[in-house]
């Protein structure tokens, strides 16, 4: 990637992310009361992360087998209520071990 292209991407990211946080902070006076808009926004983090994770995660290590082992480990750890970093390490470690076998 050329340096100029990188800066263009970076500035687009920065301006959109900055404005989305700051404009409502400066402009709005009251809360959003509409329950449909509130609900839509409440679901967004989960749908974004779900769609970003699957199916891309199965290609994350470059091997379908080790990725699948890692995903399984992550799902078990997350279901048991482990913290973010623990789950991440479990996924990576399981994939690493699967790759060595």
């Amino acid at each position: 990637m050329k340096t100029g292209v990188y800066w263009s991407y970076l500035l687009v990211m920065f301006f959109v992310t900055y404005l989305i946080r700051v404009v409502p902070f400066v402009v709005f006076r009251k809360k959003i009361e509409n329950k449909y808009i509130r609900s839509f926004l409440a679901y967004i983090p989960y749908t974004v992360l779900g769609a970003m994770t699957f199916p891309a995660v199965f290609y994350a290590t470059g091997s379908l087998v080790t990725s699948t082992v890692g995903v399984a480990a992550a799902l078990v750890a997350a279901y048991r209520g482990k913290g973010l970093f623990t789950v991440a390490i479990c996924a990576s470690f399981a994939a690493l071990l699967a790759g060595m076998l």
């Binding site: 983090p45 997350a78 991440a88 790759g99 060595m100």
Partner: peptide
């Protein structure tokens, strides 16, 4: 290489750690 490949899963692991408890 094999360690950094495996660590490619880490960020997805964190995403899973956020969505799974909420789904549960």
């Amino acid at each position: 290489q094999n360690v950094s490949d495996a660590l490619g899963l880490a960020i997805y692991g964190m995403f899973i750690a956020i969505i799974v408890p909420a789904m549960k």
